[in-house]
Design a protein around this nucleic acid. Structure first.
Lengths: 299, 299
DNA sequence: CTTAAAATCTCCATATATGAGATTTTGATG
DNA sequence: CATCAAAATCTCATATATGGAGATTTTAAG
């Protein structure tokens, strides 16, 4: 039988615990501490379609994006391939829970429960809580925008941001995923990833990575990232926002696996190279401070 | 009492416009232990237990609150009454979707997907989009905090807020539900509700409503609210935050049903009664402007 | 008041989630 | 690194919820 064969396969894997580590070291990273399952392919190519109804309800929430903030039931049925009653049942449940709300145009959008939960997240996320004082400090010391960004799935997500400039340069406020191929933040995180986890990401973003001068081949990029890792922080000139310098350092867990990044963004015409180095050192210090606090969080 | 005297002073000052005093409360803020009292409308007799698995998964997300930001699987099993495998299955799905994440203490918290969705909500919510320019205007004109708050379920939820003060007085930033029984905001919304919808809410919050001087019996409160409705805006002195004056007006849909509230919060020692009246008129104008725009949103 | 579109409901065969307990994995510790 | 307890996952028979087609009610519009 189908299931039987799968089960057997799993059994074979787990019968010999000694070999598991060998398999892991050459496969994708296993789930680590407080991270989301870093299962290789996510939104990029093709999510494996949800198999059970629980995942199918949640899948409804996944279709909302910056490009498509509002959906009609018809479109949802088409997009997700659910039957009419099913879709409407899902919608009812999601609306009742406040995750969705109706719009006038007979459509649906994300609802107030999301807002409420985000507030709780701000209060709960240790990275936000620990990060904020540091961000205040950084923005007090420099005329800049300082941020903490989470690494989850294959995304980089700003979770906290503080600014001492009039019009903050960053176009990535809390909650907006950042590109993987550009900017000091992305690099600071990539540089910290174990090779097997890293390579597919490099391949996928090679054109961007090449464009910002990290190297022509994947191997070259890898070499550049090794250097970056050694330095402890990354600098990027106008890669994400023209005229802005990004200075970022990774926050890691107790296994040196990256979980976030601390970044200072500052107008390019405001800083000299020497200053950038000084800020870089500060950012690195902050990031590693957060890393340590984080690791010791046995509360 | 201190606040009472301030309130009285205001009352005298604002006698001229006549209506205002009628809808003003003179009740001092009652200190309930800490300065910030979380809105405690939770596990009343209100939520019926979820019947199908879809609702049961979502119910997991419902247990997170300001008082309890982190849960262990064990506690969740106890709280929700799910079996071990079921609970873990739910957790796995929710974690994979990013709604939850593991903490080091073998617990779970709300995850990054929530943050991401909240960002989308900020971009999608017409109240936020339409409201923000008005808030900018209000905070430019006055030294205050201006907010838009949604009315959903039986909650009042701040969705947008702008501030021109150094330390914003409001302890209700985006996403934090507000109490129903206190403050100008709550009153501006309650006043707009149809009687059958309103009465149970009055009953449930009668002690609070009485404390702020809206009347002794439910009928009295109802009468006060009628007046408030007529005036078009509400004023409250230190009911939510000691020393702060709240001035709020309802945003309604095309059937005059309240969907939100616009509020200006300003330090009590900064404004005279006459100014409060002027601000009140402004707030009312903004709220009704948003109402109209909202109703015409056939985009 | 009539009509169209949207949303909900009914029915039922069948796929699917469930829970008790066994099993495996994790991670802390001497 | 062997050991042990706690945490997480798995197995499988069973009961249950699910989703498809189409009927039906509700809502919005003319």
């Amino acid at each position: 039988m189908y299931y039987a064969s799968i089960a057997q396969q799993f059994k074979v894997d787990s019968v010999a615990p000694g070999k598991v580590s060998a398999i892991c070291s050459s496969g994708p990273a296993r789930q680590t501490g407080s991270e989301i399952r870093p299962c290789g392919v996510r939104h990029e190519a093709e999510d494996m379609k949800p198999k059970n109804s629980l995942e199918r309800v949640l899948a409804v929430l996944e279709v909302f994006s910056e490009e498509r903030l509002e959906w009609t039931p018809e479109d949802l049925m088409r997009e997700l391939g659910y039957s009419r009653p099913t879709l409407y049942r899902y919608l009812k449940i999601l609306k009742d829970a406040g995750f969705l709300m109706s719009t006038r145009n007979a459509g649906v959008t994300l609802g107030p429960k999301v807002v409420e939960m985000d507030y709780l997240t701000r209060r709960a996320d240790p990275l936000v809580l620990r990060g904020e004082p540091h961000l205040k400090q950084l923005t007090a010391d420099h005329f800049c925008t300082a941020m903490v960004l989470r690494w989850y799935g294959n995304k980089i997500l700003c979770v906290a941001s503080e600014s001492s400039t009039r019009n903050p340069i960053s176009s990535y406020p809390r909650g907006r995923p950042m590109p993987l191929g550009r900017g000091a933040i992305a690099r600071s995180i990539l540089a910290q990833l174990p090779r097997p986890r890293l390579m597919p990401l490099i391949e996928r973003n090679l054109s961007d990575l090449r464009a910002v001068g990290l190297g022509d081949t994947a191997e070259d990029v890898l070499k550049s990232l090794r250097k970056a890792r050694k330095a402890g922080f990354c600098v990027a000139y106008g890669e994400v926002t023209p005229g802005a310098v990004g200075i970022a350092a990774p926050v890691v867990d107790d296994r040196d696996y990256p979980i976030a990044s601390v970044c200072v963004t500052i107008a390019g015409n405001l800083v000299t190279g020497a200053q950038i180095d000084r800020i870089g050192t500060e950012v690195r210090r902050v990031a590693s401070q957060i890393s340590v606090d984080q690791a010791n969080d046995k509360a």
